[in-house]
Simulated scan of single mutants.
Amino acid sequence: MKEEKKKIQTYFSITLGLLVLSLVYTLSIMLIDVRPIGPQGSVVGFAGMNQYFHTLLSTNMGLYDLTDWLSIPVLLIVPGFAITGLVQLLKRKSLRRVDSSILILGGFYVLVFSVYLFFEFFVVNYRPVLIEGVLEASYPSSTTMLVMCIIPTAILQFQRLISHKNLRSIINAFCGIYAGLMVIGRILSGVHWITDILGGILLSTTLVMLYYSADQWINSKAHQNHKQ
């Protein structure tokens, strides 16, 4: 019991550390080496590093379009788990009987999309290229953040929902490779500054760790109540 409690405290401590790191990183982008190197004179933090990688990678709009299209199946995972929760609700006839991990996942999705919307209005960086003539917000890379939030939490769900070990391993491996290729594709497309991609990875890691910590805590509470 004490060991389990200590583990959960460690998870939340890691989450807090990641949150602080995310805030420091975001503030650093807003304050360090800020120069007007973007389109229409838009200013960018860590300008030297960002300009170097953007010149190195250039821009590949075909890859940008491809990763946009490939993000659609990832987004469809969200209603997929919503339907799973609804089916459990209809079968079990009580919200309390729906798997706690599914309910926490629903709250997690709300948080992720809230963070996405926040950065759409609170602009840290604009893109290094115009998209159809429009200067769009670029930090964090929304595609990177959504992929790296949705796929890892889906893998955690599949660990519970898919009983066949080999099938589960194949699906989770595919999901991991898919997420990795999406992030690499987004980097090579050159439609984000490199710091925006790194910010997407860091923020998604923080959010996923928060989900995992909350899930483990709720499960621990449920096991304690069951024993009593």
Rank of each mutant, 00 (worst) to 15 (best):
G107M: 09
L167G: 11
P79R: 08
P140V: 01
Y116T: 00
L70E: 00
L75H: 12
L167Y: 15
S71D: 02
R96S: 10
F119W: 10
F81E: 00
Q157S: 12
T67A: 09
V43D: 05
A154T: 02
C175H: 08
I102R: 03
I102E: 00
G80W: 13
F119R: 00
V87K: 09
H54C: 06
M61G: 02
S142H: 01
Q159E: 13
N172I: 14
F118E: 03
V87P: 11
P36A: 09
L86M: 15
E132S: 07
L161N: 04
S94A: 06
N60P: 00
I72W: 14
R97C: 09
P39V: 05
H54P: 01
C149F: 06
F174H: 07
E132K: 07
V129Y: 07
M145D: 03
I77M: 15
A82L: 14
F53M: 11
L95N: 07
E120I: 10
I77R: 07
K93G: 04
E120A: 06
P128H: 10
M49L: 12
T153W: 11
Q51H: 15
E136V: 01
L103P: 05
F113M: 11
P79G: 04
L111Q: 02
N60G: 02
V98H: 04
G180R: 08
V134H: 08
M145F: 13
T84M: 09
Y126F: 03
T67H: 08
P128C: 08
L146I: 07
S163V: 15
L156T: 04
S114F: 13
L103F: 10
F46C: 05
R127N: 01
I162E: 12
A179M: 08
T59F: 10
L156Y: 15
S42K: 03
S94I: 07
